[in-house]
Design a binder for these strands. Structure first.
Lengths: 89, 89
DNA sequence: TCCATAAATTTAAAAACTTCAATGTATTTA
DNA sequence: TAAATACATTGAAGTTTTTAAATTTATGGA
């Protein structure tokens, strides 16, 4: 397991707003960026910034449909994280 | 599962030096702060700072033997993290 | 008691992060 | 084609984090 991957994912998760975005994606299955602006009460550029960190780290997947970006959870990354911490426990 | 606990643990893990401290604790079973100064090449105050974050977050346990602080992994926290990510995967 | 050792705290500087207004880009629709 | 929509990027301000020198605290040994 690559520690740089763990570090980057942990960093993405280690923020109140980003963690709430993750949990909302889990709850709804998928989100668009506009949804995130609404339920976080953050500005659109700020949301764009946080979403970028989540996607770059591999925690969230994004796919563009026209001008809409759809966010989903990267379950493969969740599996990797789960296994990493399982090995340490 | 309390998200604030996850956020704090993720924050503790989301640093190159702190992650390497964790992995060294895993490897050796236990460490004292002085060991950490050596293998990280960080100053004693900096190590003290990082260790504090790791212990406060619940990622590491610490116990004081005289003037020596012994650090061990909090396996219960590792289990909690593993379960959290397992539920998301 | 006095000195050495282990770690914590204080303080300050530099780097990184968070945030949003303004602006830019791409795409859809009227 | 022009306007509207969804998101990205830039730039700047404020905040937090990282780091280490200097100092302090606590403990062990001579």
């Amino acid at each position: 397991m690559d520690l740089a991957v763990i570090e980057k994912a942990a960093n993405a998760i280690a923020d109140k707003h980003r963690l709430s975005i993750i949990m909302e994606v889990v709850k709804k299955g998928k989100l668009i960026c506009g949804d995130v602006c609404e339920f976080t009460c953050l500005s659109q550029p700020t949301v764009s910034h946080h979403v970028k960190i989540l996607v770059d780290s591999g925690v969230l997947n994004s796919s563009k449909n026209g001008r809409i970006v759809e966010l989903t959870l990267n379950k493969e990354m969740m599996k990797q994280l789960s296994m990493f911490f399982l090995q340490l426990s």
